[in-house]
């Protein structure tokens, strides 16, 4: 089975198990967790890397795809333990497939 499909199968099983146990899925399956605070800050934990970084667009490598953050005056304030903190005037957060 291709690696991508294998990862999707494990994720689906893990999510089903989490649902059965009534616990958050990220406790069972490693995944990217985004926390948006207002329209000024977004913290993405579990990222794989920074693919693009500019004042109007930040692209992060997430689990199984990419996260595109668009806005104005964007800046990466901090990244520790695999979590990236982006601040600025956030206009949109888009999830996409990895290239």
């Amino acid at each position: 089975m291709p690696e991508k499909q294998e990862r999707r199968r494990r994720r689906t099983l893990g999510e089903a198990l989490a649902s059965l146990l009534e616990i958050p899925p990220d406790a069972v399956v490693p995944m990217t967790v985004c926390t948006v605070r207002g329209r000024r800050e977004i913290e993405a934990a579990g990222c794989g890397g920074i693919l693009e970084y500019g004042p109007e667009r930040v692209t992060l490598a997430a689990d199984g795809g990419v996260i595109v953050i668009e806005g104005r005056g964007l800046g990466i304030e901090d990244f520790t333990d695999g979590a990236v903190l982006v601040r600025g005037e956030i206009c949109s957060v888009t999830f996409g497939e990895e290239a």
């Binding site: 990222c47 890397g49 920074i50 693919l51 693009e52 970084y53 500019g54 800046g75 990466i76 304030e77 901090d78 990244f79 520790t80 333990d81 990236v84």
Partner: peptide, 19 residues
């Protein structure tokens, strides 16, 4: 080089501050 630097530092676990 900002994107490349931030990405490399992120993967290496080296925090950057006060950009």
């Amino acid at each position: 080089s900002r994107t490349a630097v931030f990405d490399a530092m992120f993967r290496a676990g080296i925090p950057l501050r006060h950009e």
